[in-house]
Design a protein around this nucleic acid. Structure first.
Lengths: 348, 348
DNA sequence: TTGAAAGCGCTAACAT
DNA sequence: ATGTTAGCGCTTTCAA
C-alpha cells in the first residue's frame, strides 16, 4: 500500500515553473557551489577549476538540467531568432526560400520562426507583430498587404526588417526582389520571336505587386512588337485552379483566340498546363517561376532562384544586425529564361 | 556646429534593454497610473474604467509600446510555441506538412518554430534540444537518428513530444506514421498484377525507417507472387540524383534487366522518371509519394497525405498539452494507390 | 577562483 | 477600481 495522500501532496503549485524543471539554483545547491559558478560552467566561461566544473557537471547530469533560454533572453535582450512571414509554406516556391533563410540563420546561431499569411494583409500584420512581441532580432517579410506603417515603431525600436519578393508599402526599407518586369518582358518577347502576336496573360490579383510588374513586362514586350493588346487577352485574379481554368478556356476559344499564353506564376502555370493538355490546338506557353519536372514536360519558364532570394535577404538582415546602418537598399535579382519546348511552338 | 559630446552622452548603457523600448513601467509613468493597470489594459482584463483605459491607450500609442513576450513567457511558464524538426523544408513533402502543423498551432494560439535536420542525427539532436531550451510547449520530430533517449529528460520535464513519419528510437512516445509497408506492398502487387516479375526497388538509406519498411513491403509482395528477388534488383542508398541514376541504369541493362521499377520516395521517383525517359524500352514505374504534375506525366504513385500527417500529429500534440495522459499511441495513416499509366505498362 | 546582490519586463497574489 | 510587492531563471556587476 502506498501512504495516504495529504492535501499538500496533491495540490499543484499555482505557478507552472516549467513542469518543475531544475534551475541553476537547484544545480548550485546540489553541487554545493554558488549560482554564478553554475552559470560559468553552463556557458563555458573561464575561471572555474576543473574539479569544481566536474562537480557542477555531475549535478547537471543528475538533475537533467537544461538552461532556460527564456530567462536568458529576457536578461540579454537578444533572442537569437529571426522571423519569416511568407505567403504559404506549402507553396513550392517558399520551401526552398525558407530553407535558405534557415541556413543563413543557423550560420549566425539563430533559429527561424516562420508563419504563413495566406495572402491576408490582416494575418500578415498579426503575425509580424506577434514576432515583434517575441522580440525576434530581425524580420523578413514577404508582403501580403500594401501598407507596412504598422512596422515603423518596431523598426525604430531596433528590429531589423527586410522585405522580400514584393516591396514594402508606405515605408522605406531594405528590399530584395526578382526582376519581375524584366523577366516577364523577356518571356513574352520570346513568344513574339517565335511568331506569336495574340498572346494571353494570366496572373495573380492586381493587389500583388509581382502580378502587376509582370503584367507591365507583358505590355512592354507587346508594345516593342507594335502589337495592340486585346482586353480579353489579360486576366488578373485569384490563382485558384477554377478561375485560371476558366480564363484559359475563354482565351483559347474566344472570338480573338490566343495562340500563346504567358502564365504569371507557378500556380497559374500548373493549371494552364493541365488545361492546355486537353485542347485540340497546340498553344504555346511560357510560365513565370520554375516548377519541378518542368523539364520532362517541356515547359518553358522564366525562372527565379528562390534559394538565392532567401539567402540574399537573410544575409542583408544579418548585416544589419551586425551594425550596418547604410540607407535602405533595393536589390533586384535577375531571372533566367529556360527554353524547353512549350515556348518555342509556332502559332497554330 | 553640434554641441560637445560628453562621455555620458556617448557611452552606451551596457545592457541593451531591447533597443530602449518602452516598458509597462514607462507607460504607467506617462499615463500616471500603476504598473498593474497597464498590464490590465494590455491584456484586456476587466476592472479598468473607460477613462483610465483611454489614458493608458494614449500612452501606449505615444510611446510605441509593445508587450515584451519574453518576460511574459518567463513569468507564465508557457511559450505558446511549438517546435517542428523535419528533414528539409525545401522538400515538397514537408512544405504541406509544416503548413498543416502551423494551421493547427494557429488555432491554438501558438507559433511554430521549425528547423531542418538535413537527415543528420547530430543536427536533429542539436535542434531539438535548442527548442527545448527555449521551452517550446511541445515538439514534433521527424527523426533523422535512431536513438532519442536524449529527449527523455525533456519529455519527463513536461515537453509534449510527437514523432512523425518514422518511429522514435529507444523511447516510447506518440507516433504518427503513414503505412509504408502496406503502401509499398500494394504498389508492387500492382506491378505484379500487370504481368511484371523482374521488379527493381530503389530506396533511401537503410538507416531511414521508411526505407526499410517499404523494402519489406516490396519483399512481401514479391513473396506473395512466389517470385525470388535477385540481389541486383534492390538498391538502397542516398537519394542524390547521381546515385539513383546509376542504380536505375544498372537495373534496366544488367544481365537480369528489370521490366518495372518501384521508387522508394519522391526524390527517387523524380530521378527515375528522368532516366527512364531516356531509355529505349518502356519500363513500368510506381513511386512512393505523390509529386506535382505527376498526373500530366502519367506517373502511378502510392500517395500519402502530407497535410493529413501534419494535422494529425499537431492535433495529438495539443491534446497532450490539454492534459491527455493516456499511454503513447501509434497512429498509422493509410496510403492510396493512384494509377496514372506508368504503373500499368506491360512488361517490355 | 568564487559568490552575493541587483535587475531584465512581466504577471500573480495580495493589499488598499 | 487601482496599486504594491514578490519573483519567474537567468546574466551582470562588483566584492571577497
Amino acid at each position: 500500500m502506498t501512504g495516504q495522500r495529504t492535501v499538500a501532496e496533491t495540490a499543484r503549485p499555482s505557478e507552472p515553473r516549467y513542469g518543475n524543471r531544475p534551475t541553476m539554483k537547484d544545480v548550485a545547491a546540489r553541487a554545493g557551489v554558488g549560482l554564478k559558478t553554475v552559470s560559468r560552467v553552463v556557458n563555458g566561461e573561464p575561471g572555474v577549476t576543473p574539479d569544481t566544473e566536474r562537480r557542477v557537471q555531475e549535478a547537471i547530469e543528475a538533475l537533467g538540467f537544461r538552461r532556460n533560454d527564456s530567462a536568458r533572453v529576457l536578461r540579454k535582450g537578444r533572442t537569437a531568432s529571426i522571423g519569416l512571414v511568407l505567403e504559404d509554406l506549402a507553396d513550392p516556391f517558399y520551401g526552398p526560400l525558407s530553407r535558405a533563410v534557415e541556413e543563413v540563420a543557423r550560420a549566425h546561431g539563430a533559429l527561424l520562426i516562420n508563419g504563413s499569411s495566406a495572402e491576408d494583409p490582416d494575418r500578415e500584420q498579426e503575425l509580424a507583430l506577434a514576432l515583434c512581441a517575441r522580440r525576434v532580432d530581425g524580420l523578413i517579410v514577404i508582403p501580403a498587404g500594401d501598407d507596412h506603417r504598422y512596422l515603423e515603431p518596431e523598426i525604430k525600436a531596433g528590429i531589423a526588417t527586410v522585405f522580400v519578393d514584393r516591396p514594402a508599402g508606405r515605408i522605406d526599407a531594405d528590399t530584395i526582389l526578382s526582376d519581375s518586369y524584366g523577366g516577364a518582358r523577356e518571356g513574352v518577347a520570346h513568344l513574339i520571336a517565335h511568331g506569336h502576336r495574340r498572346i494571353g496573360f494570366i496572373g495573380d490579383r492586381p493587389r500583388i505587386h509581382t502580378a502587376t510588374e509582370r503584367l507591365r513586362g507583358y505590355h512592354a514586350a507587346m508594345a516593342d512588337a507594335g502589337t495592340a493588346v486585346h482586353d480579353s487577352w489579360v486576366s488578373l485574379g485569384s490563382t485558384e485552379p477554377g478561375r485560371v481554368r476558366a480564363a484559359v478556356e475563354r482565351m483559347v476559344s474566344g472570338p480573338e483566340p490566343v495562340t500563346a499564353l504567358f502564365a504569371g506564376n507557378n500556380r497559374v502555370t500548373v493549371t494552364a498546363v493541365r488545361v492546355l493538355a486537353e485542347q485540340e490546338r497546340r498553344i504555346a506557353l511560357v510560365g513565370f517561376d520554375d516548377i519541378e519536372l518542368a523539364d520532362l514536360l517541356g515547359i518553358t519558364v522564366v525562372a527565379q532562384d528562390a534559394a538565392a532570394v532567401g539567402r540574399t535577404a537573410a544575409e542583408h538582415l544579418f548585416r544589419r544586425l551586425d551594425g550596418a546602418d547604410h540607407p535602405p537598399v533595393r536589390v533586384q535579382l535577375p531571372t533566367a529564361l529556360v527554353p524547353r519546348g512549350s515556348g518555342e511552338l509556332p502559332p497554330a
